[in-house]
Design a protein around this nucleic acid. Structure first.
Lengths: 349, 349
DNA sequence: GATCCGCTTTGGATCGTTCTAAATACGTTA
DNA sequence: TAACGTATTTAGAACGATCCAAAGCGGATC
């Protein structure tokens, strides 16, 4: 229940119309740059608009026209630079198309996500871009969103069991990214390669592990189950788990990490155990966050261009709004391996 | 000009009213939980609401009531974790109060900021929170925002020369923060302390330098002008400028940095010059970004709690909306020194 | 003088809510 | 029986824009 106060009263079309002795309809035509109105009238009206400091009331227009000029953007963790960049990309592209972004941050809580969605939908956005919180349920989401508002799900899979896909999907090409990183390490001469970090039940982690496994298999390399190490996707947790890597003998000589945060944490953990990442242990990340290029050593990683993905997501939802009939697609965004210094050949001793 | 398409038609109050044979007014009362309606009627109406899958049209309600349930949030750089956290805090508090966040990212461009403000204001937000882009002009901002929408300016000063303050201000206590950091280094025994990073013309940098200067003076320590080193507030630039610190003889033994990014860059630069931050050179930062606690060595810094500041900003603007007559205040948020390992006593040799 | 034309302009209904003032129902009291 | 009070419901005019169909206005044509 928004507590709010009536404003002092704003200048409306009617005020302008009265002020220069034309009808509201004419003023409206001027505002929308219609070619119907006479030059002289237009000039008079425009002068009056400026004089009274008129500001357009888009809500009223939208009500009458039964349209909307906003898109809701629901993010699972705005504090995470990856999603913040994504949001910036979305807002940039939406702004350029004349839309405004309705923001909602869920902090990875599926409950809050429901609340946020119900609240946002009441503002009548033309579409919704959702980066789901962990543990989101497709049916619940849909019950809040309804069937009339186009929905684009970003980054995580949301169970969509029905025959008909009920929303559009934009995902990173996780398998390929992990495969590229793994192949790169193999090409450098590594044979014992671990997959480090991430939660087994997250869809992106599954997909990345799969790409890793494919590359290993294609090269005829065995994967020791002890080389699949889970950890929360944060630097701190990853640093803590570093030890788990060296429980087996022989230990791995390289690790493909779930993401950059984990990779940076692993490098920290290695350093504090007296190992030098990029010299006697190879590490790769995923995401290419800003820090990756300035860490010591600079991190080899898979770039996904979150800002570009944001722009893409905005483009997709706008397209869908214009052609509501088209059936939802599932889009996989390409990724790119960026080789830096953290991926070294296996040390010789 | 938003290109948009009429939607398939939504369920309205009238549909519900017709569906259970009461008037629109009654349904409206039910929706708003008025005690006037009879229990039995209420139940009937509620059943019908559910049956038809009604969703409230807040825009229409806002039009009629001449209210607004949104607040615009304009951010100079969403990609920066500090501002992303701030935004998350704002959204959290606004959401709790039943408001929705209209997001706009300006990417530090004053031009884009004007465009964003004019676009957002047309959606009739109840208030605006603005973290200004570099080089913003107070008068231009105000010409876009108008005088009827409460404005809260965050983090940077915006020239407000007039006698009457025309907007509310929320700033960090920069002078005190820098003073605390400097005093901490002095207490450890340092005598030659540099101020490293930031642009001289940014208001926050000026304020932090001032706090540093005060502390130095209070301790009777001279400041060599060569110890005031400018740099863009990024890690990379800071690393590049590291050399400038050792141009003078005797060189400083510690540095108060403009912010954490700069401090981390400086530590990088020190390391690559064979110096060990936290052992033979002391470093402090400002902001306490997530990384600060996990860097090597962990960074002594000044915590400003961006998420908390976001919540505070939301609270302030909401308060102002309710009491529009109150004259705008200028609020300085307290900061806190967090001592970690990067600040060591001066090395003995 | 009536008709038709293109060029402009306009009154009034409309979008989905809320608000006001008044209507309705029904028992009580005088 | 009329007047009254309480509890509940409602018709219809707003809010600020847009849309539609129609009208006004010369001037050209018949």
């Amino acid at each position: 229940m928004p507590k709010d106060t009536p404003s002092p009263r704003k200048v409306t079309l009617a005020d302008i119309a009265q002020g220069c002795d034309v009808s509201r309809a004419t003023v409206s035509l001027v505002l929308r740059g219609s070619p119907l109105v006479n030059k002289v009238t237009r000039a008079r009206v425009e002068a009056e608009l400026k004089r009274q400091g008129y500001v357009y009331n888009r809500a009223a227009a939208n009500l009458r026209r039964r349209t909307s000029s906003s898109i809701a953007l629901v993010i699972n963790d705005l504090g995470n630079p990856f999603f913040a960049e994504f949001a910036a990309g979305v807002d940039e592209a939406l702004g350029a198309a004349g839309f405004v972004t309705l923001l909602g941050n869920t902090g990875e809580s599926a409950e809050r996500q429901q609340a946020v969605l119900t609240s946002l939908i009441e503002h009548g956005p033309a579409g919704i871009i959702l980066s789901p919180a962990e543990g989101s349920d497709g049916d619940r989401v849909l019950s809040a969103v309804g069937l009339h508002t186009p929905l684009l799900v970003f980054n995580r899979e949301l169970d969509d069991a029905d025959g008909q896909p009920r929303w559009e999907t934009l995902e990173m090409d996780n398998p390929t990214g992990a495969r590229l990183a793994t192949e790169h390490l193999i090409a450098l001469g590594h044979r014992r390669i671990a997959f480090f970090g991430g939660h087994r039940d997250s869809s992106s982690c599954r997909q990345r592990r799969q790409g890793y496994a494919e590359a290993m298999q294609a090269a005829g390399l065995a994967v020791d189950p002890g080389w699949l190490i889970e950890s929360a996707p944060t630097r701190l947790e990853a640093a803590r788990q570093t030890g788990a890597m060296f429980n087996r003998d022989p230990a791995p000589t390289a690790a493909v990490c779930y993401n950059d945060a984990v990779a940076l944490g692993l490098m920290l953990g290695l350093t504090s155990r007296g190992r030098r990442p990029g010299e006697d242990f190879a590490v790769t990340g995923f995401d290419d966050i800003a820090e990756a290029s300035v860490s010591v050593p600079p991190l080899t990683t898979v770039a996904v261009d979150p800002r570009g993905r944001g722009r893409q997501a905005a483009g997709l939802i706008l397209e869908r709004i214009h052609r509501a009939e088209a059936k939802p697609e599932r889009i996989i965004a390409p990724v790119q391996l960026v080789v830096r210094e953290s991926s070294c050949p296996p040390s010789t001793h």
